[in-house]
């Protein structure tokens, strides 16, 4: 049985100490919040390249400055990607094919829209969190596999999920629309 929200939120999470020495890491949505702090950890933990995949190059560069200062490293790069723009995603993945190795991809970028808007002809939250995210995942898989063969280190593709997946209203909302045919 999974612990409840209160227990989970007050569970102490271990401070990361594992080495990412020589590894190349991509983190999407990393100029702020979780992605940004994850990038800082990866830099501190010895990664040789940390790619901040972000919508705004200037905000990405601000983030890199902060990480360089706090960790005393110089391993971060800013690459542009807009997860609500499929061409931007495939361009990003083509660029990643040129990497010497790719050990970790943290698919962290996400949005939570309260109002119906569209990107790429789809509702924006679905376009970014689902379609864009897996368009990127499938396009990075060959690069990850090549890296694994080359280095012997099994790459990781980490998806930022959420406990809210358990919400049952999906059942209600989407399935009601089926049942009403």
């Amino acid at each position: 049985m999974a612990p409840n929200l209160f227990v989970r939120q007050f569970t102490k999470l271990p401070y990361p100490e594992i080495s990412f020495k020589e590894q190349t890491v991509i983190i999407t949505g990393s100029n702020t919040g979780l992605g940004f702090e994850a990038a800082r950890h990866f830099a501190r933990l010895g990664a040789s390249k940390v790619i901040l995949a972000v919508r705004s190059i200037s905000r990405g560069e601000e983030a890199v400055k902060s990480i360089n200062t706090s960790t005393g490293t110089n391993v971060c790069e800013v690459w542009h990607v807009n997860m609500g723009d499929f061409k931007s995603i495939t361009d990003f993945c083509k660029r990643a094919e040129g990497l010497n190795r790719l050990d970790v991809v943290c698919q962290n970028a996400g949005i939570a829209k309260g109002e119906f808007t569209q990107m790429e002809g789809m509702e924006s939250t679905i376009a970014v969190n689902v379609v864009g995210t897996f368009l990127m995942a499938l396009n990075l898989l060959p690069t990850l596999r090549r890296s694994g063969i080359k280095t012997g280190h099994v790459p990781r593709l980490v998806n930022t999920s959420s406990e809210v997946y358990e919400s049952v209203s999906f059942q209600m909302a989407v399935f009601d629309s089926y049942l009403s045919f």
């Binding site: 949005i111 569209q118 789809m122 969190n129 689902v130 997946y165 209203s169 999906f170």
Partner: peptide, 22 residues
């Protein structure tokens, strides 16, 4: 169904996106 703009159920849209991901 999730792309219907009339009466979209946006209150749990984020949750739905995460469930679809899982």
């Amino acid at each position: 169904a999730l792309n219907k703009s009339d009466k979209p159920d946006m209150a749990d849209r984020y949750q739905t996106s995460k469930l679809l991901g899982v």
